[in-house]
């Protein structure tokens, strides 16, 4: 579920960075204000645990595939949602930096999908209300945990779908993409829930003092605001997206008989003209598969000039060559790292 840089547009990436940054800032402020003693080592070590736990793959009952713990919900149950967000954000940052698992511009998306959603949305909106009525019944708490895990993972996967589509980098339609992602993540969420239950119950047996409901004033409002922020972020990045017609285009793509030419709308043509000015293959209408040679648009879209395109490639290759030459000149001599 880690998104890479290559699959997002700057508008989506920056918007999600803003949402993630806001959530992290809120978590830091609340922790500093409401916690007598910051559990710095415990947070760090549990982060390391989530990290190491992802090495442990196990079979998913009844499917024949295997999965591993993602950890967002477990951290929330053990540390409370504010600390959990910080820990998950740190885990995702380290994964992006050290292992190229998820990109830097995409880190905001990843923090939202895998930290903010489980901790600030799934936990207060699903787990708390369900578990609230069950002081003793562990079956009910198991159910609450599994459901919260599933909701968290599904919402995260849904966010991945929306963020990718808004970035306009996939030929898949919204419906196809969602139909691919959501059922898979239903299974993944189930595993997440079961693994979380298993770990929490093991801890309750051997270290009962470590598992206690984090006593913090959890505001339901925060979750609602979080959801609203996600929604607004989605709209904003849709408006600001470098491919403003991303959704429309992908919906159109999967409409029955998309290979036939749909009647081009005025708006569509205007957008295509904008597109044409910024795109490198200006003669190629990327946005409307059915309109390769519409008679009324020919004037606006000049005929193919392969020459222009080739000139661009040639010039780029020359600049590249010059850079390599200069780079080779300034390159440090020894290739070994110094050993102090």
């Amino acid at each position: 579920m880690h998104m890479a840089d290559a699959l997002i547009s700057p508008a989506v990436g920056l918007t999600m960075w803003a949402v993630a940054g806001g959530s992290v800032a809120r978590a830091v402020r609340r922790l500093r204000n409401e916690t007598a003693e910051l559990p710095v080592p415990r947070m760090g070590l549990l982060g390391a645990f989530v990290f190491a736990a992802q090495m442990i793959n196990f079979s998913i009952p009844g499917t024949g595939s295997s999965g591993h713990l993602a950890g967002g919900l477990l951290l929330t149950l053990l540390l409370g949602s504010d600390a959990a967000i910080l820990v998950m954000a740190a885990v995702l940052t380290i994964q992006a930096l050290l292992f190229a698992d998820g990109g830097l511009l995409a880190l905001g998306c990843n923090i939202v999908n895998m930290a903010v959603i489980p901790s600030y949305v799934a936990y207060p909106l699903v787990y708390r209300p369900l578990a609230a009525f069950s002081n003793s019944s562990s079956a009910r708490r198991r159910l609450a945990t599994v459901l919260a895990a599933i909701v968290g993972v599904e919402l995260g996967a849904f966010a991945v779908v929306v963020e990718t589509l808004l970035s306009g980098v996939t030929p898949l339609s919204f419906a196809t993409f969602a139909a691919l992602m959501l059922p898979i993540h239903l299974a993944i969420g189930l595993v997440e829930g079961i693994a979380t239950v298993a770990v929490v119950e093991w801890l309750e047996r051997v270290r009962p003092e470590t598992v206690r409901e984090p006593a913090q004033a959890e505001s339901r409002l925060a979750a609602v605001i979080g959801l609203a922020a996600l929604f607004i972020a989605g709209i904003l990045s849709w408006l600001a997206s470098s491919r403003p017609d991303g959704l429309e285009w992908s919906l159109q793509r999967t409409a029955p008989g998309w290979e036939e030419s749909p009647p081009p709308s005025k708006l569509h043509a205007a957008l295509a003209r904008v597109q044409q000015r910024t795109s490198w293959f200006p003669d190629y209408d990327f946005t409307s598969p059915g309109e390769q040679e519409p008679a009324n648009e020919t004037a606006a879209w000049p005929a193919v000039s392969l020459g222009t395109s080739l000139a661009g490639v040639l010039g780029s290759v020359i600049v590249l060559g010059a850079t390599v030459a200069i780079g080779l000149l300034v390159r440090p001599r020894s290739r070994q790292a110094p050993t102090p």
């Binding site: 559990p39 710095v40 080592p41 415990r42 760090g44 070590l45 549990l46 390391a48 645990f49 190491a52 736990a53 442990i56 793959n57 196990f58 079979s59 998913i60 009952p61 295997s66 713990l69 595993v191 079961i194 693994a195 239950v197 298993a198 770990v199 119950e201 093991w202 801890l203 051997v206 270290r207 470590t210």
Partner: peptide, 27 residues
């Protein structure tokens, strides 16, 4: 044989206990 989720739970639990213990010592 592959890990069943029950075994995985125990394994993860053990790992988690170690994390807690080390956190205690680091603290």
């Amino acid at each position: 044989r592959r890990l069943t989720w029950r075994q995985a739970g125990t394994l993860l639990g053990q790992l988690c206990v170690r994390a807690f213990d080390r956190a205690e010592r680091v603290h």
